[in-house]
Each structure stands twice: as structure tokens, then as C-alpha cells.
Design a protein around this nucleic acid. Structure first.
Length: 593
RNA sequence: GGCUCAGUAGUUCAACUGGAUAGAAUGGCAGAUUUCGGCUCUGUUGGUUGGGGGUUCGACUCCCUCCUGGGUCACCA
């Protein structure tokens, strides 16, 4: 049962009857009634003025009277300017609510769309540990994958690991020169942190060398090119490409350390992947596709032999795909990798790339080229572009050491949660293990929620103090509401399958039910717009409404049996939605805290 | 310079894609209750939506033009 659809039909009938005109559903504008007026749903009559040929107030009055007479669901109405505010019967709300509590997986699309999407996120370089920017990326990608599943799609979660190139060689070289055989075991450092340490070391020594060369009279560009460290790193890259056994073994060993480190970070984060791609495999992809495109006339060749794609029809500059020496560029591999993924997963409908907004242009070009190559699925590729995370003191800069490390940050929010929960929590009955789980549920929940509640595409400010705050629009605030509901459910009698629909209910309850009825639409919209923020804000509103309701009535002590059971059922349903919605964000909710 | 995205209470974010007097949170101030878990709730304070013009019943939203700040535009990865 969809209340808006019921109203829609009634309104169409009203227009037919009153003005002898058939109208389309799109011409009927319904919205929630503003708080300051009485009513649940409001019809905006301005767009209908052409049909009624009367003043807005008059038209609204006429339609309102017709509805009152002919639709038993409408109990009252009032008109404010061009807005017709309708009050629906309590019974209608309760009937709709009964339907909600009988629907399994309420809000989720229960029948499969048959479509499969691949969501790519994380995609780190293997020369340093993850940082705050990765956290936003990974939480976003993971959440969008969950939201797509809730919409009935199949999802393959993936990442492409940038495991080759000059940056790795820098770490390898520094380790060879200064490492004395240090390992994660011998140093006690996480593998990714160990490698990161040598990447920094490289940079330091390299700068020293540059300074020395400049002192001998070289320009800074010359010095950057000629510094022995850089020459050695380049030489190492060439050896790697030639699969030199010694270098290759070193590369495998050091990457192995990094993967172990990443794995442990992902585990703490609570995210996973279905399929991994490595750049050391994928960097060769794409060349043949480009050659083939040239044959078919989709691309063109310049006199020097370089191959280009003409994108003037898309109002984009032409894009280089193969250099004159025949080597490939980033775009080449991205084209090849996309096509390869469709070979690996023939049922794929589209790809979602979770990548920062500095690559907006890159993906625009990528999708245009894929379309030009005749891949219809290019239409369903999407760049999930997100804004930079900034700190109160400005941007994160690795050179200035202001990068917030992912492992450190997570450990610190969990510590904070421990402190606060010890002071205020009601957790004496929990075992030590359960307590530790709880601290990470709260700490990480706060962090994830904080990073996801902002619209992905806008840049955001990260204030460490605020991220695990307990008040306001925060994860722990929502978790607390859930824990309180669970406390009620522990102390109540068994609930019947249905709620009695002849009881009298108040505005808090109607507002809550109305909001609950929106859940499915919110999930669907969040899926279409790839926006976890919509889910976060929806849950927050739900919890605020519930808290007001909780404060204003008594639930377990209500004497009327039917009303009490209704209020408990309502609480239970709110709890379930909070839990399922938060899980879409990758956030757990605790039974006690 | 070309293209592109953004600019909303002191601060951090919303605004159902053109709808009512632009909403929350936080901060400040003033209250509630001793309960079904106070990590709660209710008031109040705070805005020329960067400036200016236009489109219409109606603009944060669409168009034009300035101002400010990002990003991007490599035979770099």
C-alpha cells in the first residue's frame, strides 16, 4: 500500500469530475505538509491553475471539498495560499504500518534486478600506509556497494592495487641502502608502515643529493634528474620491467609486507573485496584495443606515429592513447582494464569507480572513449567522485607531515570511545571481549558516520574532536537510541503480528510512521545517486523523531493494551530500520552501550 | 588563459531537483525530568543563500555578468 498512490488516484478523479480534464500523474505535486500547518500531505495546486482556470485558493478549496466527500481517508483539510493541506485518517496510517511490519526486509528491493555492478574502491599505492583520504574513499565505496545490493543488484567489490612503478622502486632502493635487512618482525612495525618509512627516507636522502648538486652549480631541474638516488631508482624500474630475478624477488617480498599491513587495516575497518586487480598485471592491457580502434577508424594517428582519440564532439580535447614510441599512458590501461573486467564478469552492467574529484576529467574522457568504442555499458559506468578531506589547519600535505594516518586515527577513536563508555556506559554485564568490541563499534561507528553523512561530491572538514562526539548528528547518538530501544524490547511482553487499527494516536506517532514509510524510496534514491549521505540523514531524522516520541509518551507503562503494543511495535520497527540503515553505511549498532 | 566544481546562521552540514516564513546540529542563553537507559527532550538566539541583473504565480535551485577559492587541461604516473 502506497499512500501517495491512493491520494494520486483520488486527486485525478477529483480533477476529472470537477473540471472534466484527465491529467497525468506528473502534474500532481504532493509533498509533506510543513510543520507550522495542520496536515500530513499537501497538494500544490499552482500547476493545476491552467486546468481549473480559477484562483489558487478557490481551486484548492474545491478539490479539498471533493476529496472530503469522496475519499474516506481524508478527515480534514485546510488551504493556505495555493497549498491544500490534507489530514489523513489515523486508521489509514495504522493500516499502512501493519503492512510495513509484515514485510520482510522492509525497505529493500526484494526481487533482483538481475544486474551486476562492479564497485571499485581503495586502490592504494603500495609504497605507504593508508591515510584519512583513503578512509573516506573506502567507507564510501563499501557503503555504495551495500546500497546497490539493497536495491536488488548483484555487486562485485574490487580494488586495483598500484603495485608497480617508480614509487615502489624508491622504497625498495632506500631499504636496500639503509635497511640492514629490517623486516616487520624484527622492527615490530606493520608492513605498510615499514615500507612507508623507507619511502620517506628516500625522499630525505634524495633532497640532500639535490642540494649538493645545486651547490656545484646545477639548476634544480638538472639536479632532480641527475641525483644518484633517482638514477638508481630508474635503473631499478627498468630491471623490474625486465623481470630481473633479484629485483623481482625483492619487490615481491616488500609488497607482501604491505599487503599484510593493508589486510589488517581493512579488517579493522570492517570492509572486504571480492576480486583484486594488480597494476603489475593490468598495465599491459589496452594497447591492442587501441590498435584495433585505429584499424576501425575510431582513433587516428599523427605523422610521428602517436595515436589519439578525437573527442571534439564531446567538447573535450583530443586524448593521447599511445606515444610515438608505442608505449602506453594511464588512459590506455584504464580502457584495457575496463574491458578486461567485462571479460571476467560477462554479466556486468556497469562499473563504479570511487576516486577523488581531481580525476573528474580523466573519467569523463575514459567513459567517452569507451562509448566511442561501441561499448553500450559505458552508459552505466559512473565516477563516484568525492571531495577532499581537509583538516582544521588546512589541507593534508605529506611533505609537511600533516597526513592523518588511518591506523593511528582508528586506534585513537576507539580509545576515546573506551574512555567515554567507561564513564557513562551501562555495560557491567559485558565480558572484557564484549567491551572491547563495543568500544570499536562506537569509535569506528562515529568515524564512519562522520565521513559518510556529508554528500560525497562536496569537500569536507575533518575535525578530530568532533568525529567521536556523542551529541548531534553523530554515529554514537544514533547508536544510543538503538540501544535504548533494545532495552525496551528486553523488558516487554510478546508482540502480536498486527497492530490494532482502531486506536487513537498522536502526532508524534503519525510523523514517525510517515517517515518510516519513506524508507524504501530513500534507499532507492541513495542507489540512483550513489549517496550514503541520504541514508545517514534519513536515519538521523528518524532517530530525532523517535527521541521526541519517547520523551512525550510512556511506552511500557501505557495502560491501554492496544496502544502499548502499538508503541512497542513502533519502537521495534524504528530499531530495525536504524540497524539496517546503519549497516548500509557499514556501521554496527550495539544492544547496550 | 580554456574547461569545470564549489561559495548557505559564528562554525559544520541540509533543503524532496522550481514550492509555503531557507532547516538541523554545534556554540551561547533559559528550562524539563529524578523514567521504559539523561549519551534524552523543550524553548530562545543567530541569514541580504558571495555581489548585481534577468526568467515567473514562486528562485539556494534555471540564464547572464562580475568577485573569491578548489580541481584539471602532459608523448607524468
Amino acid at each position: 500500500m502506497n499512500i501517495e498512490n491512493i491520494l494520486l488516484d483520488s486527486i485525478k478523479n477529483a480533477i476529472q469530475d470537477l473540471y472534466d480534464t484527465a491529467i497525468e500523474s506528473q502534474q500532481v505535486q504532493l509533498q509533506k505538509t510543513n510543520k507550522e500547518f495542520e496536515g500530513n500531505i499537501t497538494l500544490v495546486v499552482f500547476p493545476l491553475m491552467r486546468i481549473t482556470k480559477k484562483k489558487p485558493e478557490e481551486s484548492a478549496e474545491e478539490i479539498g471539498n471533493w476529496l472530503l466527500k469522496n475519499d474516506t481517508h481524508i478527515t480534514r483539510f485546510n488551504v493556505v495560499k495555493g497549498f491544500l493541506n490534507l489530514v489523513l485518517s489515523e486508521k489509514l496510517w495504522l493500516e499502512a504500518f501493519n503492512e510495513v511490519i509484515q514485510t520482510p526486509n522492509y525497505g529493500f528491493n526484494s526481487h533482483s534486478t538481475g544486474k551486476t555492478y562492479m564497485v571499485e574502491y581503495a586502490s592504494p599505492n603500495t609504497n605507504k600506509p593508508l591515510h584519512l583520504g583513503h578512509l573516506r574513499n573506502i567507507f564510501l565505496g563499501y557503503s555504495v556497494a551495500e546500497i546497490l545490493k539493497a536495491n536488488g543488484h548483484y555487486v562485485v567489490k574490487t580494488q586495483i592495487i598500484n603495485d608497480r612503478g617508480i614509487h615502489i622502486c624508491k622504497s625498495m632502493l632506500a631499504w636496500q641502502m639503509f635497511g640492514n635487512g629490517e623486516t616487520p618482525e624484527s622492527s615490530g612495525l606493520k608492513g605498510d608502515h615499514l615500507i612507508g618509512k623507507y619511502y620517506v627516507k628516500f625522499d630525505k636522502e634524495y633532497k640532500k643529493e639535490i642540494a649538493e648538486l645545486i651547490a656545484t652549480g646545477q639548476t634544480s631541474e638538472e639536479a632532480e634528474q641527475n641525483a644518484p638516488m633517482m638514477l638508481a631508482a630508474r635503473a631499478m624500474l627498468l630491471k623490474w620491467e625486465a623481470k630481473d630475478p633479484e629485483i623481482y624477488a625483492l619487490w615481491q617480498k616488500m609488497n607482501g609486507w604491505v599487503y599484510d599491513g593493508f589486510e589488517s587495516t581493512y579488517q579493522t575497518m570492517g570492509v572486504d573485496f571480492d576480486k583484486l586487480y594488480y597494476e603489475s598485471d593490468t598495465y599491459i592491457y589496452g594497447k591492442d584495443v587501441v590498435e584495433e580502434g585505429l584499424q576501425k577508424g575510431q582513433f587516428y594517428q599523427k605523422e610521428d606515429g602517436s595515436i589519439w582519440c578525437d573527442l571534439s564532439s564531446e567538447k573535450l580535447d583530443d586524448k593521447l592513447l599511445l606515444r610515438s614510441d608505442g608505449t602506453s599512458v594511464y588512459m590506455t590501461q584504464d580502457i584495457g582494464t575496463a574491458i578486461e573486467r567485462f571479460k571476467d564478469y560477462p554479466s556486468l552492467s556497469g562499473l563504479i569507480y570511487t576516486v577523488g574529484n581531481e580525476q573528474n576529467h580523466h573519467f569523463k574522457v575514459l567513459f567517452s572513449i569507451l562509448k566511442k568504442l561501441g561499448h553500450s555499458w559505458a552508459e552505466e559506468c559512473y565516477h563516484l567522485s568525492y571531495g577532499m578531506v581537509e583538516l582544521p589547519e588546512g589541507k593534508m600535505k605529506s611533505r609537511e607531515g600533516t597526513v592523518v594516518d588511518a591506523d593511528d586515527l582508528m586506534a585513537s577513536v576507539i580509545d576515546d570511545a573506551r574512555e567515554m563508555t567507561k564513564e557513562r556506559g551501562q555495560i557491567d554485564s559485558l565480558s572484557e571481549n564484549e567491551k572491547e568490541d563495543l568500544y570499536s563499534t562506537i569509535g569506528l561507528g562515529g568515524l564512519k558516520y562522520y565521513l559518510l553523512k556529508v554528500e560525497p561530491k562536496s569537500k569536507m572538514l575533518f575535525d578530530p574532536k568532533e568525529s567521536i562526539d556523542l551529541n548531534g548528528n553523530t554515529g554514537p547518538f544514533i547508536q544510543y537510541a538503538f540501544a535504548r530501544i533494545q532495552s525496551i524490547l528486553r523488558n516487554c511482553e510478546k508482540l502480536p503480528a498486527n497492530v490494532v487499527t482502531e486506536i487513537s494516536i498522536n502526532n508524534y506517532e503519525i510523523e514517525l510512521m510517515q517517515h518510516i514509510l519513506d524508507y524504501g524510496q530513500v534507499i532507492s534514491k541513495a542507489g540512483k545517486e550513489y549517496s550514503p549521505a541520504l541514508i545517514a540523514n534519513y536515519i538521523y531524522d528518524l532517530v530525532k523523531m523517535y527521541n521526541s516520541f519517547y520523551q512525550s509518551v510512556s511506552i511500557l507503562k501505557e495502560e491501554n493494551d492496544d496502544v502499548r503494543l502499538f508503541r512497542i511495535s513502533l519502537s521495534k520497527k524504528v530499531g530495525e530500520i536504524v540497524q539496517s540503515g546503519m549497516l548500509l553505511l557499514g556501521v554496527n549498532v550495539p544492544n547496550r552501550m
